[in-house]
Design a protein around this nucleic acid. Sequence first.
DNA 1: TTATGATTAAAACGAACGTATGAATCATAC
DNA 2: GTATGATTCATACGTTCGTTTTAATCATAA
Lengths: 219, 219
Amino acid sequence: METRTVDTRERILDASERLFMAHGYEGTSMRQITGDAGVNLAAVNYHFGSKESLMQEVFRRRLDWLNEERMRVLDALEAEAAGQAVKPSAIVDAFFGTLLRMAGDENRGGMTFLRLLGRTLTEPSEFIRAFLAHEYKEVMDRYKEALFKALPEVPKAEIVWRFHFMLGATSYAIAGTDALRLVTDWQIEDEDSTDRMDRLVPRLMTFLLGGLRAQLPQF
Amino acid sequence: METRTVDTRERILDASERLFMAHGYEGTSMRQITGDAGVNLAAVNYHFGSKESLMQEVFRRRLDWLNEERMRVLDALEAEAAGQAVKPSAIVDAFFGTLLRMAGDENRGGMTFLRLLGRTLTEPSEFIRAFLAHEYKEVMDRYKEALFKALPEVPKAEIVWRFHFMLGATSYAIAGTDALRLVTDWQIEDEDSTDRMDRLVPRLMTFLLGGLRAQLPQF
DNA sequence: TTATGATTAAAACGAACGTATGAATCATAC
DNA sequence: GTATGATTCATACGTTCGTTTTAATCATAA
């Protein structure tokens, strides 16, 4: 009962991750998934119950670790700061850097999962929206509070918005690592695709911090 | 042949814009669209040929004006600069500000279209990706060149990436004008929803320019 | 007023969808 | 080796999908 089950479940989850990333939830059929995974059509309903539950499991498998890691890192930063405010750059790196570094970790989904996450955050079906809101709530609240403390001179509403802008920039940065040229037909000459992800992290971080710390707009 | 046809076409386009925005392309059925529009099921295929062509027309109806307007504004800026480089803030406002100001113009789709555009940029089906790439190519190239000229000390690859980050932040800012709390459960207290859009423009612009002009990352 | 072309309407098409069923096959424990 | 429960398999169910077809209805010009 060991290897068969585990293999089948994993194969389904891997194929789903790939296909949901490429074609979205509604655009991916169970027959594509089971065909790609090389398992029987009925296997998804046997192991996961339904397509919706499968989608949730695809996310849970990755997000559980990601959000726990984010909590751990922020815990460490706050312990180190010993009551003082944590630097904004450290908070941003803990949240977005931890996410981006998943791209290099194939065991945690790598680029495929990141791109799936990026696109799903803007195309949420009702059920997945509710699911993500629940999965993310705790972490979001922690980081929000940390930023409030780190930037006491910036109004809270402004911080919330800027966090949201950062999410968007990051989402596009991920989703568009090769989709960039698909929309814009741009090319970045002197880099091959392995370099690109390594350079993306400092590039994006610089951009995010520039935006986060920008001078307040005048009303 | 006048009012009937035009009405039916417009009613279909309006309903499609709403429904595609709310549920995505694959998640919206022709029966929902024609039901919502109050027209016969066959009307879509009669007037537009297919669901794909309908989707393209939904975008063309709005993007044609948007991209022409972006061209006009940039033309004016460059004429005014008389050979000198245009200020980055002016370029960013011409591109993103022009987009955001559509939100207040109900005749040009308003928030509904903006949110549709925002979500579609990250969830493109193959056919719509190709369509958008074609629709946007000319404008993108113009603005890219303008930014190269405006920021000669920043490497071109860096500018391309930052443009992409700005697109992402803007897309989220739009798509999330009320979806923010759906993912994060955040609330921005002291503002009602009419205020929110007006304040969003300067907020986002500040963020974008902060990111665009951030000090270069150290490799 | 009648002929003509454009539009709408009702109904049906085959294909694909997510899911359920019951038999076959597997691994394990006795 | 046989019984038992877990898993896989082939197949079918009922729905819904985008599209097509054919007839009815409308607006307009002769």
